[in-house]
């Protein structure tokens, strides 16, 4: 376990499955937590989205394309995408000290890498597009929820994109492949496999794993995660259309 994750620690359960075969939350193996998305919730930002994914509450703002400071950061041929993943002090069970730590810096980086392939950055040379992610409450799986919401905020800002980006985590708990791990499952399961895809062509823009899986298990987990992304993608579409409901 990552040292920096200690502030998220939940009490360790004896097993991660109930006697009836369901997960402790009552979910089936491949059942997602309830997800709610809302687009366009901030006034100042050029694009914004709010996602509630289980108990995760995450708000994302997009600013840009705008002038970059300092100027030497400008790329002559395209826009620079910057990402900042930040957890509110009250978002975790034990108060998190404000400010970036190594975990949030890595997450900012992988989230940026997950979003970049969908954007047409070459249309705005020398500018910057900022994606600011604020985790207001966390319950495991914040990076995939952040990516899902960030892609909505980007689309809401009117930026040109090849596709949305949709993300979900698969994993392995008590020897079984499951989808959408919550905090306890993430912490005490055997493996966590967050992925992000661009749904139209099912191209994978984020894949990370920590823990252990056999190649066969990985294949199953990946397949199930991609399937679940289609379901989440439908919700994303609805959320975007809801913003401009007539």
């Amino acid at each position: 376990m990552n040292e920096e994750m200690s502030y998220m620690l939940e009490k360790k359960p004896e097993k991660l499955f109930r006697d009836d075969g369901k997960r402790l939350s009552g979910r089936d193996l491949f059942e997602l937590r309830p997800i709610k998305m809302k687009v366009g919730i901030l006034e100042n930002a050029d694009g914004s989205a709010f996602i509630e994914w289980g108990k995760n509450k995450i708000i994302v703002a997009v600013y840009g394309p705008r002038e970059i400071h300092p100027k030497h950061m400008a790329i002559p041929t395209q826009a620079r995408l910057r990402c900042r993943y930040n957890m509110a002090a009250f978002s975790t069970s034990e108060r998190k000290k404000p400010g970036p730590d190594r975990r949030s810096i890595e997450l900012s980086k992988v989230i940026r890498e997950a979003l970049v392939p969908a954007l047409l950055l070459e249309k705005f040379p020398k500018t910057v597009i900022d994606v600011f992610i604020e985790v207001l409450e966390s319950e495991g799986g914040t990076r995939v929820a952040s990516i899902t919401a960030a892609s909505l905020a980007l689309a809401d800002s009117g930026l040109p994109m090849k596709d949305l980006v949709t993300a979900v985590a698969a994993g392995k708990i008590d020897g079984k492949i499951v989808l959408d791990l919550d905090s306890a499952e993430d912490m005490y399961g055997e493996a966590d496999l967050p992925i992000a895809i661009m749904p139209r062509r099912k191209e994978i823009t984020l894949i990370q794993m920590d823990g252990k899986m056999t190649p066969q298990e990985l294949r199953l987990a990946l397949g199930k995660a991609i399937e679940a992304c289609q379901q989440i993608y439908e919700m994303q579409k609805r959320a975007l259309l809801e913003r401009y409901k007539i």
Binding site: K55, F90, S93
Partner: peptide
Amino acid sequence: NFISKAEGSAMVQLGKTKVLVGVKLD
């Protein structure tokens, strides 16, 4: 009670200003 992980919390909207406050105990 906007944040369930916090012992106390409030989302405030004043005109278009939005502020979220959380109270944690330790």
